[in-house]
Design a binder for these strands. Structure first.
Length: 552
RNA sequence: UGCCCGAUAGUAUAAAGGUAGUACAACGGUUUUUGGUACCGUUUGUCUAGGUUCGAAUCCUGGUCGGGCAACCA
């Protein structure tokens, strides 16, 4: 099929199955539990499942694994659907495990009839106690040998709501001494008198994951059921139920989940960050959620590219955040219009500029195929420039402004620094320059060569905006393998808010969903907090900065 | 102390018994009206001990290290 690119181990399995005629059509599924927001780790699974059927044909179902009514909400169903669509994938069928509750119930009845399941009245503690340990076998429950008739009757009564939560459970009868703990008579149905987000109060017994997932795969004729490594030991049970129920044999294959440096990925920990107010919500731009990344300015294409590059394997991994950043820079470099914004302003006065102002023309994106078009940029006698672009006593290899030094103002003229003014504290307040009228960008006849080009905004035309410069959320590579609580390693400087940055007028009409490059600074996007009066920009990622790096 | 996974440059990922390659990172250079981009180059690797073989990252055995497994969660 594909000769050029090497295959990952799942693609190899699929190609073998397709070539041998084992399956004619590939069917996969993405099965999130609707109990939280999707994150970049889910994106890996989404790209895998949908990408496979895109590549080999067939289709992918979206199935909400909603077997636990107390944790699941419609709100999450909606956000998860939106995130998958935004990532650029389309599912064939929108399905819910809860659609199969009746079928699953019948499956359980069959198991009982075949003498392979029983109702147990032991308490949770007793069951845990009797389970044994990985090195010691468990003990049979005293309810294990009940008659089929009695089990049938009790299970019916469980379903009819005759028992309170926890009074009893239905267990598969396998082997209490099995070396795989999951095979020691696993619980398959429990009583929960709780409202389900889709089935309401129709049911008061709900199947456990292990008694729902494989069967749901089977019902949908999923050929390749892909999940993460922590389910490896569940596969034995998955296969056991399919065999005993004599239903379509879906097969489970496991791959390593994504771990990212300077990030936590578990839903529990992300929820904690939200609940304890360390971030503003699930879509805080520092969160690794799809909605957070989107708000931060990450593009769907860049996330898909990232998932492509990290590969699929069975080994535990910790991917460097720099790869994700590379992917978004690579994408935005081709699409983001170049604009100018000054974050830490200092005034520059061009002493020999005698006009009021003029309109300059700027090319929006030299890297785009169509160059991104052009825009007007007003220029005048007084400008804002970046404080860090001036050094009173220039360092070695300093290409920027310093007394007597010359730089080009991007899209405009070459200027020479003639003088500067300080306040009583020694802070520089104003810089005085002269400009070379014949050095205008695009029609430069001055013959002057300068090493540095800096960005600027015309003071009289500037608009203001709030700029939020985000950085990594944690100070250590692997917050959850560090000693103590992962929250001890939160980065106190994960966001720097600049209340009043100066932006060029063109940006007043910035729209969300669009990435901009603030020249020499980074990629930015309009935040949803923006109002007509106050624009807010998020830094998606900084530009590489060889100068800053060299100084360290 | 049981069972199950896994182990290739700093990080990932290829090489189906036959040249250890690619990307990111790092470092150096060229180009540049962004110290960006682009382009070129450099450094760094098969966990270990045996065995099979003309030949082993790959197959076999032992060991070491890492991860998972004892929720009425998924």
């Amino acid at each position: 099929m594909s000769e050029e690119r090497s295959l990952n181990f799942i693609e190899e399995i699929i190609e073998n199955d397709l070539n041998s005629g084992k399956y004619k059509t590939l069917i996969t599924r993405f099965p999130p539990e609707p109990n939280g927001y999707l994150h970049i780790g889910h994106a890996k699974a989404i790209c895998l499942n949908f990408g496979l059927t895109k590549k080999y044909g067939g289709y992918t179902n979206l199935r909400f694994d909603d077997t636990n009514p107390v944790t699941e909400k419609t709100e999450y169903v909606d956000s998860q659907q939106a995130d998958i669509k935004w990532l650029g994938f389309e599912w064939k069928n929108e399905l819910y495990t809860s659609d199969y509750f009746e079928t699953l119930y019948q499956f359980a009845v069959k198991l009982i009839q075949d003498g392979l399941a029983y109702v147990d009245h032991s308490t949770a503690e007793e069951i845990a106690q009797a389970k044994g340990t990985p090195t010691e076998p468990g003990k049979d429950s005293i309810y294990r040998s009940r008659s089929i008739e009695e089990n049938l009757d009790l299970f019916t009564r469980m379903k009819n709501g005759e028992f309170p939560d926890g009074a009893c459970i239905l267990r598969a009868k396998i082997d209490m001494a099995h070396t795989n703990m999951l095979m020691r008579d696993p619980i398959i149905y429990r009583i929960k008198h709780a409202d389900h987000h889709r089935t309401g109060s129709t049911w008061c017994i709900y199947p456990m994951y292990d008694f729902a997932h494989g069967q749901s795969d089977s019902i949908e004729s999923i050929t390749h059921s892909l999940c993460t490594l922590e389910y490896v030991s569940h596969r034995e049970l998955y296969d056991w139920f399919i065999e005993k129920l004599e239903i379509f044999p879906s097969h489970q294959y496991e791959f390593a989940r994504l771990n990212l440096t300077y990030t936590v990925m578990s839903k529990r920990k992300l929820l904690q960050l939200v609940n304890e107010g360390h971030v503003s919500g699930w879509n805080d731009p520092r969160m690794p959620t799809i909605s957070g990344l989107r708000r931060r300015g990450y593009t769907a294409a860049s996330i898909r590219e990232f998932c492509e590059r990290i590969g699929i394997a069975k080994r535990e991994n910790l991917i460097e955040l720099s790869l994700l950043e590379f992917c978004v820079r690579e994408d935005l470099n081709k699409t983001a219009n170049r604009v100018m914004a000054v974050m830490d302003p200092i005034k520059m006065i061009i002493t020999n500029y005698n006009q009021d102002s003029e309109i300059l023309i700027g090319e929006n994106n030299p890297e785009a195929e169509d160059k991104g078009g052009q825009r007007e940029i007003p220029f005048s006698k007084e400008l804002w420039i970046e404080r860090e672009d001036f050094m009173e006593e220039p360092a070695k290899k300093w290409f920027r402004l310093a007394p007597g030094a010359m730089v080009r103002l991007k899209f405009a003229y070459i200027v020479k620094c003639e003088d500067f003014k300080k306040d009583e504290n020694g802070n520089i307040t104003e810089i005085y320059c002269t400009y070379f009228p014949d050095s205008k960008s695009g029609e430069d006849t001055s013959g002057i060569n300068v090493k540095g080009t800096i960005h600027w905004v015309s003071a009289m035309h500037a608009k203001t905006a709030e700029i939020r410069n985000y950085d990594r959320l944690f100070t250590v590579e692997s917050p959850d393998s560090e000693e103590g609580d992962f929250k001890d390693y939160l980065n106190p400087d994960s966001v720097e808010v600049i209340e009043n940055a100066y932006i060029e007028p063109y940006l007043a009409e910035a729209n969300a969903e669009t990435g901009y490059q603030f020249i020499r600074k980074g990629y930015y996007t309009l935040d949803s907090d923006s109002t007509a009066e106050k624009l807010v920009f998020n830094r998606t990622v900084s530009l590489k900065d060889a100068w800053a790096k060299g100084k360290k």
